[in-house]
Amino acid sequence: MTEVAPKQGPGGRLVLAALVMLVFAGLAWAALDRPAAYPGLASSVLDRLADTGAANPVTAVLLDFRAYDTFLEVGVLLIAAIGVLSLVGRETRVAALPPGDRTPVHGVLLRVLPPLMVVTGLWMLWAGTSQPGGAFQAGAVLAATLILLALAGKDAPRLADTIRLRAALAIGFAGFLTAALAFLMLQGGLLAYPAVGKTAWIVAIEVGICLSTAATLALFYLLPGSPADRA
């Protein structure tokens, strides 16, 4: 089934093109007609950076100032993972690794790259509190390692629908929720970090998010492509 010409005739296409141009014109006008002095929020963030547990402003915004956003974002990731697991059907939930034919290139790459990628991912996780990096980026690198191993047909950690996979998918949200509820009881506010040990809380939450991100991204990539689904 290839792309067929849209059902509307040339008139309909012109109307659509005109509407899209109108949208672009409106957006461009809004972009160029801006107030001369836009203060931004960088100074507000930098002024209070010392009060957060993170030295990297982006991490401070993600896990402190706008922690609610990140909390729900991790929830979205978990819901998407549940959706994928439910929709692929039971028969496809077995091992997701295609056999793959290995070449000498795979052999060298698989010996050299995965350890480097794991170290890079863990470094990004750790560095995220003070430098560019963070839990989601680290999780993406770890997921890429899993996908590389699976693509090369190496006997990678098997990604079947097991209790361990489900735990890995859920730990980010569960950890964040536990922290939020603990803060609610300790501090009287959801996601109101206690004054002491902020960095430790942030790192702990980030470790959970990193694990969940890695598991979820690998699941998105590998499980739907499992051989049983290719019927």
Binding site: G40, A42, V45, L46, V58, L77, I79, A80, F136, P224
Partner: peptide
Amino acid sequence: APGPVADPVPHAMVLTGIVVAVSVTAVALI
């Protein structure tokens, strides 16, 4: 935005947005 560093708030919003976009794409493809 003026200042020594780029505004971190839109950066954090983009990071959140990327994760949501990945989730949406995965479910949509399934």
